[in-house]
Structure formats: structure tokens, C-alpha cells
Design a protein around this nucleic acid. Sequence first.
DNA 1: AAATTCACGC
DNA 2: GACGTACGTGAATTTA
Length: 879
Amino acid sequence: MTNKLILIDGNSIAYRAFFALPLLNNDKGVYTNAVFGFTTMLLRILEDEKPTHMLVAFDAGKTTFRHKTYGEYKGGRQKTPPELSEQFPLVKELLDAFNIMHYQLNQYEADDIIGTLAKHGEKQGWEVNVISGDKDLLQLVSNKVKVSLTKKGLSDVDTYTPTFMEEKMEVSPEQIIDMKALMGDSSDNIPGVPGVGQKTAVKLLKEFKTLEVLYENLDKVSGKKLKEKLENHKEDAYMSKELVTIECESPIEISLENITYNGYEPNQVSAIFKDLGFQSLLTRIEGDVTIPVEEKEELSNLEIEVLDKVEDNIFTGVEAFEVEMLGDNYHLAAIEGFGLVNENKKYFIPTDVAIKSDAFKRWAEDGKYKKWVFDAKKVTVALLKHDIQIKGIEFDLLLASYLIDPSENHHDIPAISHRLGQKQVLFDEEVYGKGAKMKVPEFDELVNHITRKANMIYLLKEEVEKELEQNEQLELLKELELPLSIVLGEMEALGVQVDVDRLKHMGEELKERLQTIESEVHELAGETFNLNSPKQLGPILFEKLGLPVIKKTKTGYSTSADILEQLQNKHEIIPKLLVYRQLGKLQSTYIEGLLKVVHKDNQKIHTRFNQALTQTGRLSSIEPNLQNIPIRLEEGKKIRQAFIASKDGWVIFAADYSQIELRVLAHIANDEKLIEAFNNDMDIHTRTAMDVFHVEADEITDNMRRQAKAVNFGIVYGISDYGLSQNLGITRKDAKTFIDRYLNSYPGVQTYMDEVVQEAKQKGFVTTLMNRRRYLPDITNRNFNLRSFAERTAMNTPIQGSAADIIKLAMINLNEKLKEENMQAQMLLQVHDELILEAPIEELDRLKEIVPSVMESAVELSVPLKVDYAYGKTWYDAK
DNA sequence: AAATTCACGC
DNA sequence: GACGTACGTGAATTTA
């Protein structure tokens, strides 16, 4: 195998990186853009080229041997900006971490070092690749030596081989020197021959091959003026030649053996990336960053006191507290026991002992006694069922862990503990088993497990809070998520009243209609089959009935609604299938699904809001999901008639933010036009249509508005041109045109989009209004898909996440306000941009004031927030 | 039990 | 120019 030598022009690449990337600094206030760009280039080279030898050469200082020839060499050059010069030491540190040799030599330039080593490598028959941004180096190109020059940005390079050179430059590598001698180089202050630029130089060299031949045959040069100039500046030309010629025999003190490259130590690189704040590059490190191998640690003995009675004096006022339940539906599960840890002792309190104890209740309900818990909402709901209203929760390990990194999949106590190096706790699976085999272990083991969990909360609180503090997220936890979790707990525990009879009635009706359609479809298909099976349906549609295949999935034909819609008129079976799908969905998911989760005792549904799941900061809702109850199609919307107020004379009251995401966008992008549109309370989709289609309001057709709406939708959800094209049934190219026109119309938005992506590249994450974070390691991935996805996420998450922040704050404030005003009205649900409450009719007038005003004033943006509301006997009627 | 496909909301 | 492309939950079917 031949050796492969990579020679990098350090100064040149650092310069390119510096000017290609915006000037951002890391958390320590140090500028790192050049280092960052340098690093991405380095990683790319290592991944692609797999060099065996490597060196980064730097210029040594102000004067070089060339100054003796020409005092004005590189004169008049702009001084290196201090923001860049301070980054050179960092680049060298970085190279050290990569175990890459770097070198500079007094009186010589990086070019000379590179030239010298390139010749050495060439002589050995090695493959040599020179990387720079400086065209002068092209003179080194040969059959063995390739030169890669950075193009505009950093990611793109042109690699010059002798053939590519002839093609692109129209001269040979040797002629580069003569060309430069003739044309000069203003950036290096090399005179050349005045009036001779690249064009003329190339023309001359094509004819005469070398500078020497040219001057020997000066009389053959056509053009009187040109001849004169050449004659008068002969000396300049020869001197210039000397200046641009790379010294390939510079007295370097290193040799090829010194610069073998044996790869880097992942840990060292990881350390410096973290130090520089290059989170996003951590994933590019090849090889394992040895997270000291997760070794199974024996559990040491833990001194636990199992209480048979709770005394007031066991509480210190600061305790970690774990409420353990088996299975995750805390509305149904029984409490297995409590763990309690404070600075003095570790206790296990059996469920009965605690809930029957006045002392326990006194402690729990007294806000002066501070509690550190895992999942404040679960704790709140679980205790509420035993008539205990817990107060004084001041730390929640679940929420903290989520805020630190929402992309982490496992936010349970053992997983978090192990991540932070605390191993003295088992995973639930180890204790309880999993799946069908899940069961409560014997008492001692249970006591141990639960108390250890409480102990972990106690041990980790400080460290986790410190990290939040460093990320400026402590307020987000203490003032937003934690108070919200209490509010959510109350909402969940209260539950939503369901009209079960109505659901059942709808179910019976549906059942009949479904049966009718099913037999009709079987009739049309000429055979019976399972309508719910795409696998059976596919062959019938596309083989037996011969309908055109529009799209395939990896296992067969696609039969999704958008495909079927395109086949609407091809066969009468299609519309029937579509109705069947629609009704079937209602039946299985919404009628049967909801009936399954209605609590028998009170005919209420108690959903659970997952507050530590989504990547954007939104809530999700499970068992059942009450955030996707049908609304678009009338048939489905009727499901909402089954959601009713819990008392006679009460109503459902729903309030929703109008265009909150686009308002947030107007604010954070600070886009003049968008801000103006909202300040004038314009119809935003119409406004967008005017801007995208360049027409007046009265010329806008329904279709134009529909398309504009889809574009806005795309902006808010960060969809791609492909997504938009699917959405509108247009080509990707047209979709891209729409997006481009949108961004041209709103330059503030364009700038924001560019900046937020750059910021994500530098920092590795994006943030929302209230400092929620989302890490985007793929933002520098070289896989186009992954990178594009990360880029869209970078643009979208601050928008959607900030909207989530705002409604969360509004919920806390509204809850507060309702209590303050002694209202009976209660929040029931949150559906991303809307709040659903129930309230006595008598409170309606006040609610109409309070709810919108609290929601609208949650934060002050550069545009107003607008809230619409409606109410009625059922959720359906609150429209 | 896990993967696949489909469909509902924002 | 290719790549497969908003986030969630849940149902039914199929595969393993």
C-alpha cells in the first residue's frame, strides 16, 4: 500500500474558515469560528483521505527570505484581524489533540515547507495531497501531487490533477509560476507586468510556453502596447517569478518519518471539542470515546430504616422523596411504597403507614418542607388520590433531566443516575422484570430499590441544578416546568367528563355503516378480505382491479389516503374504501379507544400529559391522547359531543391562540413586514399570498390563499420543499419557488433562518425564548438528508418551542388567576395552542375577560398575541 | 414483542 | 444532483 501524505496550509485554511463563517464566540467568550471551520475541514480530510502522513504548515513571521529580493513583498496587506490571530493558538492546540504534526520555519512560508515535503513524498512515490486556499500552490501539481483548493465556502474543494489543471487553468503546473510572474498578484504585492492579467498571461504562455522563451522571442509578440510593457517590465517579471516560486529545498528540520499519522485518541479530541464548545462535532469523532466501560457495580449495603410509624421529627425540611408505583399509569396504579432521604437518614415508608399518618400529611402539605422528587406531576396525582395535596416541591429530577437534554430517551432515575456516574441503583427491569413477567419482588428488595431511588434524587440534585445553572435553564425549571407540572397534575386528576351513552350510540351507528360498506367493497372486489389489511387490499386494487400503481412501500403497494384520493374516479371501490377508513378510524381509535379508558366510577377520562418527551417543548398526551380528537371532518368532529362539562349548568370553554407560531416568528426574526402584518391584525395567509404572488388583496383567489397557507404551515413546522410539494400536490421545484419567494418577501425571516442555522452549527444546539434547548448533532453531518433535517429543525424548534413556552406560562398564570378570583372554572386540557376549561355558566362573563387577557399577556412580544374563544354544552359546541 | 402501515391532531 | 424528508399517539395487521 502506498503511503498517503496530506500537507495542509494552516494559515490559508484558517483564513478561509474565518471569513467563511460568521463571527460567533463560544460560551467562554472566545472566538472560535476559524477553529471550528478548520476542524470540520480536518475531520473531512481524515474521514475521506485516511492519510498515513500528515503535516500542517504555518507561516513563521513577518519577514521571509523573499523580503531580501523585494522589500515590498506582501506590503500593503491588511493586518490579520485580532479575532483571527487569537485563534491560531487554539488551532495548534486542536492539532495537538489530533496528534497531527504542525510546523513553521523562520524566514520561510508555509508554502515552502509544503513544497519541500511534497517533493520528498513525490520522490518516495507516495500519494501527496496539498490542501490550501492559495492558487500559488498549484505549481506543485504533478502525477503524484494533487492540490485541493477551497472554493467559496469551506466544504467545497476543487482537486487539481495535471489534467484538471489544463482544463480549468489552461496552463500546466510549471507554467503557473510564469503566469503569476506576468500577471503579478496584488494581494502579495507582486508587481508582474502592468496591463497583463490572467487572460493575456495565458495567451502568451500558450504561444511561448515559458517566460524565458517569451522574452527571447519578444519581437514575435503581437500588439505594440503589450510588447512595450513586457520590455519595460522585464526585470519586474523576473523578480516576480522568483517571488512566486516555491522554495522546494527549504532547510526544514523535519522529515517524512517525523510526520507519520497514526490516528487520534478519541478521548483527547472529545475533550478539546467540549472545551471549545463544539458539541455538534462530537458525533464525528471516529472510534469510541471511552465512556469508562459501564461496569456492573455491586450494590453496597445501604442503611435503611423501614418505618412503621411516621413521626414529625424525622423530617428536616429538605428531603428527597420517591413515590413508587408499578406500571406507568399513575391514575390506576397502586403506590408500592415511599422512599425518603435527608441529610440524616434513609427511610422506607410503606404505603399504608404513610397515607394513614397525620404527621406524613402535615409534612406533605406544608410548603415550608422542601421536597426533591422525580416526576412532580406523578407525585401530585398519586397523593391527591389519598387526599393529600403535596406542597413545597422545589426540585424535579425528571424535568431537570429533560431540560438538560430532551433527546435523551431514558429519563428514569436509574438511567439518569448511571449517566452521571452513580451506580448504586438498579434498573426497574432488573427489579420488577418486564412485560408479562413483571411483578413486585420480595419486600427487602422492594425497600432497597425504592429507597435507593430516593437516595439518587438526593445525591444528584446539586449536580443537576448546577448544570441547569450553567445552561441558564434553572429559571425554566423553577418558574415554568415545575409550577406547570403541578397545574397539569390537577388537570389530569380532575379529568374530563364523558357522555358514555352518546359514544356508545355513535359506535352502534358506525358499526352498521361499516358493515354495509364492507360488504359493498367485498362485492366490488369479487372476494372477501380484510379491509384493514393494506397487504390484502394492495393486490386487489393494483392487480385484480388493475388500478395504476402510484407509490409502493417497502413491503408492497401503498394504499394510503393520498394515494387513494388520486384514484378517486378510477373505480367506485375507492370512495367506499376512503369512507371505510375514515369511519373505521373513528370506531377503533375514538369510540372503542375512548370507551376503554373511561373510568367506571365517575365516567371521566384522565389522560396523562407527558411533560418530558417532545423535542420541542410541547406536551404530549397519552392513554388516551386527547390532543388529536377529530375536528377537521364533521363526521369525526361529532366525537367532541361526547366531551361534556362535569356538572349541570356548566359549560366547556375553549380558548386558542391565533397564529401563535407565526407571531413568535415575527418576533424572533424581527421581520418588519411580518410584524406590521400582525400589528394591523391582517389575515396572515392572505397577506402571505399577496407577498408571495405579488398581487393586491382583492386579486387573491381561494387557491392562492390555500397555497400561501400551506407555505406558512411549512415555515411553522419546518417542512421541506418535498413536504410542501406533497402537501399541495405540486412539483418539488414549484414548492421550492414558493419557499424562496416567501423568504424573499420576508428578508427578516431569511436572515433569521440563516443565522439560527449558523448558530446551531457553532453551538450544537438551538434555544427558545425561555432557554429551552435542542441539540442538533446532525447539523454538520455530511449526509445531506440528516443535515437538511437538522437545519430545518434548527429553524423550526425556536418557533414551535417558544410557542410552547408561552402557553405553558399562560397556563400557570391562568391557574393562579382563577384561584385568586375564587373561580370554580378549571382547566381540563391543553392542545398545543389552545386551552379547554369547564366552568359554571355564571362565570362565563368573567371568563371571557380573564382567559384571553391572561393568555395574551403571558409574554410581551413585538407583535400582539391574539386569543379567540368559544363555549358550549359540549366540546363540539365550543367552536 | 416488534415492525409496518395508516390516520388523527397541531 | 442524490438522498427521503414537521411532531406526536394509537390502532390493526403482520412478522418473528
